[in-house]
């Protein structure tokens, strides 16, 4: 299949958004092809989170257009019963704060929440929820309340609660934030193995995560798109990364010997 023949999953055209006191996005244009894994990079306050909310259909562009598979994403389009639910099923979002993401009384209820809202039959809900719990290896946690889960377990429950709907697009906000190195590695491995044909959008300020899984990177800075293109090119452009505050230069030691300065990433 030729790339040109495919409708982009998301298409942004001159997108602008402002909060009552400050602009968050200004004139952002790019598109995301099906099956791509895109890393949205940007320091805090770069407009990354706002862009993510626009893509997830949780906020709506005040200028320009955001299109999902050719159809414009507007408040009215998502308020439509069938269309709105269909969009929610096809686009899954894993939020950064697991305490906000997990709002049900037990792990089972959490994973079954999405399917129930979709109005699926009882059998279908039970079957799909069971599958998702197995896929993420969290069956043993089924009746646990979320406050009794570790950080890594919470992340897996969050993924299960979204993947249970089998979305075509998966949006992840800082998927490895606040996890210990081992859990981080597990999440990255999981994303590698299981996501297959899905389109994945990851917002992160960790260049390591971007390096490991992204095909394409979009760099945001001060609410504008600073760069967009293949991952290797962008991740090796030190000048760009430094000017967008994704890399810092400071002095520190490497092994025995004197301290020296070199570009250094803080995540």
């Amino acid at each position: 299949m030729g790339v040109l023949a495919m409708t982009p999953v998301f298409e942004l055209e001159g997108v602008g958004f402002r909060y009552p006191n400050a602009p968050a996005l200004d004139g952002v244009s790019f598109s995301i092809a099906p099956g791509q894994c895109v890393a949205l990079l940007g320091a805090n306050g770069s407009g990354k989170s706002t862009l993510l909310r626009l893509l997830a259909g949780l906020a709506f562009a005040q200028a320009g257009h955001v299109r999902f598979q050719g159809g414009e994403l507007t408040e009215a389009a998502l308020a439509d019963d069938a269309g709105g639910l269909e969009f929610r099923r096809r686009v899954g979002v894993v939020f950064q704060n697991p305490d906000a993401q997990l709002f049900n009384a037990t792990v089972f209820d959490e994973v079954a929440f999405g399917p129930l809202q979709m109005g699926w039959s009882r059998e279908q809900v039970l079957e799909r929820t069971g599958e998702a719990l197995r896929a993420l290896d969290i069956e043993a946690l089924r009746e646990r309340p979320p406050y009794r889960l570790s950080g890594g377990e919470k992340k897996r429950v969050a993924l299960a609660s979204v993947l249970v709907l089998d979305p075509e697009v998966l949006i992840l906000d800082e998927p490895t934030a606040a996890l210990d190195p081992q859990s981080q590695a597990r999440v990255i491995d999981f994303l590698f193995e299981r996501l297959g044909e899905r389109t994945v959008i990851i917002a992160t300020h960790s260049l390591e995560v971007a390096r490991e899984i992204a095909d394409t990177c979009a760099v945001l800075s001060g609410g504008q798109l600073a760069a967009h293109g293949p991952a290797e090119g962008i991740l090796s452009d030190e000048a760009l990364l430094r000017s967008t505050h994704l890399l810092h230069v400071h002095r520190h030691r490497h092994g025995p010997g004197s301290a020296h300065s070199h570009p250094h990433q803080h995540s």
Binding site: L58, R88, N97, D99, F113
Partner: peptide, 22 residues
């Protein structure tokens, strides 16, 4: 602030103000 984040998380999974339980 948390209630706002939770609201996003609920909407993203299809919540429209009416609850469905099993």
């Amino acid at each position: 602030q948390l209630s706002g984040e939770v609201y996003d998380a609920m909407r993203a999974r299809g919540f429209r103000g009416e609850a469905v339980t099993l």
